[in-house]
């Protein structure tokens, strides 16, 4: 690893009331890596992802993303960093009542001026880019459909298309497939992985399935009770390590 890390956590602690979500985490993620975060509910996966995309600032410690300490940025500077980070969510988090094209075009919003964005709502702009993105995720025919008329799998594809349009060097994904059935999960994960690999993007995703993590990622971080239990390539992650991760009691 010769380049600078794209994300770096320095002694990060995150607390919600009495609940310790992350406890003194140190972590570096480098460009081009595909990182899976695994662990049981409440282990700190979502919190970690929210720290990485700047929607949450740590109680203690520093989060560096793309060379910037997120806690030190003005909101304008923070937005500039956030444009470099795309996020995909479990519940898709699309605007239901808009047509698909607008949800895909929402990927441009970090760059577009207000008037350009407003105009596009009336007369969709950059249709070709959007159509190309939808084509890549396999639902080109849904360009002008209403988003709430799509199935769950299709909606997740729209969310991925939005990130494609945003074209950030880093993609974060928070349980991207846990709302989908197993077959569809495989498909969507493959899609996500291909898209990331093709353009050399970095991927950080939380996954509930270790199987998916092994198949699609080149680094697995096991989180338990807010601490990193292991951080290793898939090949070195043993069944014992997984057992320890999900064991009910210490």
């Amino acid at each position: 690893m010769n380049s600078d890390p794209i994300f770096e956590l320095r002694r990060v602690t995150q607390q919600f009331g009495h609940f310790l979500a992350l406890d003194d985490i140190n972590l570096q993620i480098y460009p081009g890596e595909r990182v899976a975060l695994v662990g049981s509910s409440g282990a700190g996966k979502s919190t970690l992802l929210r720290l990485l995309n700047g929607t949450l600032l740590p109680n203690r410690g520093e989060v560096w993303a793309l060379g910037k300490n997120l806690s030190r940025l003005s909101s304008r500077q923070l937005r500039r960093v956030q444009r470099q980070i795309g996020t995909i969510y479990q519940q898709f988090q699309l605007v239901d009542s808009l047509r698909v094209i607008h949800n895909v075009n929402a990927g441009h919003l970090g760059r577009w001026s207000f008037w350009r964005a407003a105009l596009s709502l009336v007369y969709p702009l950059e249709v070709k880019t959007a159509a190309a993105a939808l084509h890549r995720v396999g639902i080109p025919e849904k360009l002008y459909a209403r988003t709430d008329q799509l199935s769950g799998g299709q909606q997740q594809r729209v969310a991925i298309a939005r990130v494609l349009v945003q074209d950030p060097p880093v993609v974060l994904a928070d349980e991207p497939v846990s709302s989908l059935d197993p077959a569809l999960s495989q498909e969507v994960m493959s899609l996500l992985r291909t898209l990331v690999q093709e353009s050399g993007k970095t991927l950080v995703t939380s996954l509930h399935s270790v199987e998916l993590a092994r198949n699609h990622c080149d680094r697995i971080i096991g989180l338990r009770n807010g601490r990193i239990l292991f951080d290793a390539p898939p090949a070195s992650v043993s069944a014992e390590m997984i057992d320890a991760l999900y064991r009910l009691k210490e």
């Binding site: 509910s41 282990a43 700190g44 979502s46 919190t47 846990s178």
Partner: peptide, 14 residues
Amino acid sequence: GYSTSSDGQESHPT
């Protein structure tokens, strides 16, 4: 939704 994505209990979406 709560159980699968409730790492941070006060996180906004959750």
